[in-house]
Amino acid sequence: MIEIINPGWCSIVVDRGRYGYADAGIPTSAALDYFSYSMANHLVGNEMGGPVLEVTGSAFSLRFDVDVTCAVTGAEVIAYLDERPVTPWRSFAARAGNTLRVKEVLEGFRYYIGFSGIMEVDRVINSFSTNIECRFGGYMGRPLLKGDKIGLRHAKVIGERFIPEDALPSLSPPYVLRILEGPEMGRFTEETVGRLIEGGVQSWYTVSAKANRTGIRLEGKPLVFKKGVNKTIISEGVLPGTIQVPGDGLPIITLYERTIGGYARLALIVKADHDLLAQLKPKDKVIFRIIGIEEAERLWNRKVEHFYRALPQ
């Protein structure tokens, strides 16, 4: 069993998400950083697809009442097991009575904690992921609170594993987010689209404080609609990574909690950059740059190769 002493800003149970139910409006609620999520499972010897904790913010801590191997991945953090520093991206054995504390998040926004064994949490509609708005899945369908206790079945200590340094994502803003043309890009002025092609200072945006698992609102130079065009659309399907632009011209990056949207879909973040979205924190700068589909596919293939190279042997 583990007991939450301090849940940080928000900590929830996630897995790879719910698929096949979008026609009932059920979003995936997947782990936002798939690479870090998967590695948290691998480092502790769990199967791919198992539940892990996704934590936002520092000051998180939990206490163990069993001996179990754990790992912390994702955002760059300073963490301790009792008084000993913990190396992220490397599994370690915690003993009953130990406390894991994340003191500081140096870069990035979300980190993942995996445990050897099976977390006793709710699997609802084929997934352990927490749908916070609808209150189902994970730990009672809600973010963790101080005092929550999560059972660990088959908790065990295994040999140490680590992810090679050259396989770790580099987190240093400003981040370049590569994008593909979306269905309503034609509703924006040539000057606006030109800015995104150039990918220069003019296409810099700042992550606002309104960033959560549903979407990331950005601030900066408004994107300009052509004169006379409709600024909204008849509500239509969206996929994760879609950039929607409301009437005020400030883009919103749709994450994993919506299936239908009603704003103009300017562009889509390429899949190779989706994990990075989890790590955008308020005030980070991002730069958009339009690329073509062939380049997006190349980037994705490279990312997949990278993924398999990182797996511990």
Partner: peptide, 25 residues
């Protein structure tokens, strides 16, 4: 939408029908 659903194609992850379109993942 119901036709596509009935085919149970393993290539399809999700179908999102709405007012004017079907978006297939």
């Amino acid at each position: 939408y119901f036709f596509l659903k009935s085919l149970r194609l393993e290539e399809i992850i999700d179908i999102i029908p709405s007012f004017t379109s079907c978006l297939i993942h």
